[in-house]
């Protein structure tokens, strides 16, 4: 594929998605970048804002089979991975693969399931294989999980621990659509029909090829230094419980590469890093107790002063709990 064709293809693909998911250009682009970077996506939002639709659309345009797993509190790992059933006719055990053996999985309301069921999925995500009764079975490639999560304050949820959250390359929020988008949604055709009418733009092989291209996007020494500066900053700043892990650094670089590719560049710019920063760091950095704005390190009087001080966005971002916004302005380019 020529670079020019490839660029046209990616634009067409994004245009198709945006035709159905209205007014969410940025999150959609992030979702695609996450997929191209070969990672898994976590969508955290209220029910009904189009999480499931986004998964459906992505699966359609990328030509991937999709299975949906609705997580419930009585779910068992076997419901995800599959079971071995004794076949009376042949006298042997026969493996019935679970929904996980599908290229794209929509894990709906992941935080409703017990930690046991959650970890069955998360381990499969990390290893890209499952081991059942001593036999290791590879998962299809590409393999992509979109998990959705209700905000944790809802009743009957098991919030994912940070170590598990780290396995999702990106976390995005969709949020309510704006007025114009909502009007179009209400007036327009049924989204289900539109999804069914979508044509795949890519074959699985092409998708794998694209993923390889992402890995080849160039990150210069200066850029690596910038990412290191961000990591170092999160580890010394007083605002968070713990700094970013090396895995988070790798994630940041991977998504930034995909972002650069989506922009049609073969090298990463600091702007790419800054653009994907919210999705990468928001779920990985936990504010000190008392929440943002009162991190325990900034005095109450000083925090108010921070908010009043319009000249300094970085500190205002801290007061508002905007992790990425703060990081961007607090870390100078090398």
């Amino acid at each position: 594929m020529q670079p020019r064709d490839q660029q046209a293809l990616l634009s067409a693909l994004l245009a198709d998605i945006n035709r159905i998911i209205l007014g969410k250009t940025e999150p959609v682009r992030m979702a695609l970048a996450c997929l191209l970077a070969g990672g898994h996506l976590l969508i955290e939002d209220l029910p009904g804002v189009g999480k499931t639709t986004l998964a459906h659309v992505l699966a359609r345009v990328l030509g991937m089979d999709m299975q949906r797993i609705q997580f419930t509190s009585d779910m068992l790992p076997a419901d995800i991975i599959g079971v071995s059933v004794f076949d009376r006719a042949s006298g042997t055990f026969h493996f019935h693969p679970g929904p996980i053996f599908t290229p794209m999985i929509l894990a709906d309301e992941l935080n409703r399931a017990t930690p046991k069921a959650q970890s069955a999925l998360l381990e499969a995500m990390e290893d890209r294989q499952v081991t059942i009764e001593g036999q290791t079975r590879a998962l299809p490639a590409p393999f992509f999980v979109i998990a959705t999560q209700n905000p944790a304050f809802q009743i009957g949820t098991f919030p994912l621990p940070e170590s598990q959250l780290d396995r999702f390359l990106l976390k995005i929020e969709l949020g309510y659509p704006d007025a114009a988008a909502e009007r179009e949604l209400l007036a327009g055709t049924d989204r289900r029909q539109m999804v069914a009418a979508l044509v795949p733009h890519l074959s699985p092989d092409q998708l794998i090829q694209l993923q390889q291209q992402v890995r080849a996007v160039h990150a210069s020494a200066a850029l690596i230094e910038y990412i290191q500066a961000i990591l170092a900053y999160t580890r010394t700043a007083p605002f968070w419980v713990a700094g970013l892990s090396p895995r988070a650094g790798l994630a940041l670089l991977a998504v930034a590469r995909a972002w650069a590719l989506l922009a049609g560049r073969d090298h990463v710019l600091p702007e790419d890093v800054q653009a994907v920063l919210p999705g990468v760091v928001a779920h990985r950095l936990r504010w000190h107790d008392g929440g943002p704005g009162n991190t325990g390190k900034v005095g109450a009087g000083e925090a108010t002063a921070l908010q009043g001080d319009r000249t300094n966005n970085a500190l205002r971002a801290v007061a508002n709990g905007e992790t990425a916004a703060h990081l961007i302005e607090a870390v100078p380019l090398p």
Binding site: H218, S220, A221, A222, L223, D266, H267, L269, P270
Partner: peptide, 14 residues
């Protein structure tokens, strides 16, 4: 500048 500093095999450090 972006090319020199961030593009493939561009910067001195690279």
């Amino acid at each position: 500048y972006a090319n020199l500093r961030y593009a493939r095999h561009a910067s001195y450090a690279d």
